[in-house]
């Protein structure tokens, strides 16, 4: 009796979880159906699997190029975010003076500012920098990466700072007495110790930067530079009625996310939990 009860509970939990993800199933199943089949039943499995809508969607979305753009923008932004924010957070946490406190507090305080409050003056300012110095801040991946670093630095600093204050100074002090320079100390001793929180920082920033739409939509104007969310937006603007094509396009955008999730699943859930609790 008790065993049967437990089995029932297992099944209920599973059905609940599957129902929760049913929208993804609906998108996937309908990406293979033609109009007639779609109108017959939205929920049924497709009767045949042909990838013609996928090939069409890939071509119209310029998917390969968008994927490459998203990958470059996300990877480079995160590389710099990890290096720069760990360096900054370590210096701020280990130098106990007024300046450090002011810098740290200004990072934290800005976390409350909505992006919409900054977007217009930001674009104006970037435009001004471009005209004064000829540095191409707008309509380049470099400029977008620069802005991603700026917007995501506060959270990264916050996480690193919180972690650094929990690790003892003794190892660093010993290395300093042995004549280790600050740079060597950071590279050889501190950065490796920060590995657990670095995983959290990377994951949170991957989710944020990979999915960001508004910032790239304001910065990038050339179609060739578009990231996945941008190309999806323009794709839907053009083809609102062709739903099977749209479903194929959406499934394409989900593939990289699902692969990322399968590989890093454990780290993601753990990282999110730790990130929020800090």
């Amino acid at each position: 009796m008790k065993k049967a009860n437990k089995l029932l509970k297992e099944i209920v939990v599973l059905i609940f979880a599957l129902l929760f993800l049913s929208p993804i199933y609906i998108v996937f199943a309908n990406s293979f159906k033609d109009r007639g089949e779609l109108y017959e039943s939205v929920l049924a499995l497709p009767s045949s699997y042909s990838f013609q809508y996928y090939l069409q969607a890939m071509e119209r979305m310029n998917f390969i190029s968008a994927f490459g753009n998203s990958l470059v923008v996300t990877a480079v932004s995160i590389f710099f975010l990890v290096i720069l924010s760990s360096m900054t957070a370590w210096m701020l946490a280990r130098t106990n003076n007024k300046l450090s406190k002011i810098i740290f507090m200004s990072f934290i305080a800005t976390m409350l500012i909505p992006f919409q409050t900054i977007m217009m003056p930001l674009i104006q300012f970037m435009d001004q920098i471009m005209r004064l110095t000829n540095i191409p801040m707008l309509n380049t991946h470099g400029g977008l990466i620069f802005m991603h670093i700026g917007f995501n630095s506060a959270l990264s600093i916050f996480l690193y700072h919180g972690f650094i204050t929990t690790i003892p100074k003794s190892l660093e002090e010993a290395a300093t007495i042995d004549g280790c320079s600050k740079f060597m100390l950071f590279w050889k001793i501190v950065l490796p110790m920060l590995k657990p929180i670095t995983v959290t920082v990377i994951i949170l920033n991957v989710i944020q930067i990979w999915n960001d739409f508004l910032l790239p939509s304001l910065v990038l104007t050339s179609p060739g530079l578009r990231t996945i969310p941008l190309t999806t937006f323009y794709f839907f603007g053009q083809f609102t009625i062709q739903w099977n094509l749209a479903m194929a396009g959406l499934t394409l955008t989900l593939i990289p996310i699902v692969i990322f999730y399968l590989f890093a699943q454990k780290h993601i859930i753990k990282g999110i939990g730790e990130g929020a609790i800090k």
């Binding site: 720069l84 924010s85 360096m87 900054t88 370590w90 210096m91 701020l92 810098i103 200004s106 990072f107 800005t110 500012i113 409050t117 900054i118 003056p121 930001l122 104006q124 300012f125 920098i129 620069f146 802005m147 670093i149 700026g150 917007f151 630095s153 506060a154 600093i157 600050k182 950071f186």
Partner: peptide, 19 residues
Amino acid sequence: FTGPLVTIFSIVVLIPFIV
């Protein structure tokens, strides 16, 4: 150590906020 990120952060977030 702190200069590069503080500069980027100021250009992207602080200055536009005040402007």
